[in-house]
Simulated scan of single mutants.
Amino acid sequence: MSAFPTARAVRTTSEGLLWEPSERWVRGCKGEVTVVDSRHPVLVWEPEVSVPLYAFPREEVREDLLRPAKNPLTGTHSGSRIFYDLEVDGELLENAAWTFPADDLAGHIAFEWFSRSGRGLDHWYEEDEEIFIHPRDPHKRVDALPSSRHVRVEIDGTVVADTRRPVLLFETGLPTRYYIPREDVRLDLLVPTEHSTGCPYKGTAEYWSWRGDADVPPHLVWSYPDPLPAAGAVVGLLAFYNEAVDITVDGDRLERPVTPFTTALSARPVT
């Protein structure tokens, strides 16, 4: 199944970009300075990238803060036509903004998100709610449903979790994640890490690694201590990467899925 939207509102450019207008009021800030204040943003999906970004009409962007890029990037953002550096309060952020080559998006400027790329604007808002990492995809759903399925998780043959009261999280384009109460997890076999990630649908996650000698990647267990409302049912529960552990549901062992996380997990150094 394609991870990209297929609704009729989505348009395709000759460069392979997908885009559609959004009715959300979007603001992007660098520190206390509002750089973008837009009531007419468009969502853009780049080829081979499953999550969208925003582009904005020039008149809704602080163009007085943009400078032609001193060291423009090449081969990024679908062959972008022009890159800009952003200067705010004496700080110069290189290649923080760009324009797409597509005629459909002429007159629009897109920005990097600091929490995603390490550069660019560091605070974003849809209406009055702050969002993180990337815009929320209107074609994507996240449903967290309490269940009575019997879920067992094994790592290298050791049962590390066993529950009949999981919360199943269904997220478009990803395998079902099984969130398990802490009382049903062998926490003595896990060690907390300083790793954390952010998700625009679920919030900020904390992580644990396997304490044993099994050849598994670090940070393969996570939890949302303060999830966003859409995922409120998983608060404090623990989930395991299906890609790296063995999960049995109602007596049937699941195949390990191949997802965008598979390569990242296999590339991490083993602890």
Rank of each mutant, 00 (worst) to 15 (best):
D226V: 13
E243Y: 12
R136D: 05
P217K: 00
A110S: 15
R141Q: 12
Y201K: 00
L17I: 05
L228H: 06
P57F: 08
F100N: 12
R58V: 11
P192M: 04
T13M: 02
G16V: 03
G173N: 11
V33N: 04
L105M: 12
Y54Q: 10
Y54D: 07
H195N: 06
L254F: 08
V42W: 10
A69F: 06
S14Y: 04
E154I: 01
P229C: 05
E91P: 00
R8T: 11
A267F: 01
A102N: 00
F114A: 15
S266I: 01
A69H: 03
R256P: 12
L265E: 02
E206C: 04
Y179D: 08
V221Y: 01
Y201F: 14
C29H: 15
T197F: 10
S14A: 15
P181M: 11
A205E: 01
L93V: 15
A205D: 04
P269N: 09
D103N: 12
P217C: 00
R62A: 14
A96C: 11
R141C: 05
W19D: 00
D104R: 12
I133T: 15
K140F: 07
L105I: 07
P57V: 08
A264D: 06
S223G: 02
V270M: 01
G16Q: 05
R164E: 12
R268Q: 12
I133D: 04
I133G: 00
W45Y: 13
E243Q: 10
P181H: 09
P257D: 13
L18Q: 13
F170E: 12
A205M: 04
V185R: 06
T99V: 13
V151K: 05
L189A: 14
A9E: 15
V49K: 14
Y207S: 04
E154A: 14
V153C: 02
K202Q: 01
T172Y: 06
T12P: 00
Y224N: 00
P227S: 02
R256Y: 08
R8G: 00
P101L: 11
G90M: 04
G232K: 11
P175L: 07
F170S: 11
D37M: 07
S148Q: 13
T163L: 10
H108R: 15
V26G: 08
L93I: 15
E23F: 01
P138K: 03
R62D: 03
Y178G: 05
L169K: 04
V10R: 03
E112F: 14
E94P: 00
F111Y: 14
W19H: 02
R152V: 15
V51K: 02
Y84A: 04
G28M: 13
G198Q: 13
P68H: 06
H108N: 13
H134K: 05
W210N: 00
N71Q: 13
L18K: 10
R177P: 02
P57G: 07
P138M: 03
V36G: 11
A97S: 13
A55M: 08
F170I: 15
A102E: 10
T248A: 11
V249L: 08
W124Y: 06
A267D: 10
G251H: 05
F4S: 04
Y84V: 02
G236P: 03
V26W: 01
G173P: 14
A239C: 15
S223M: 05
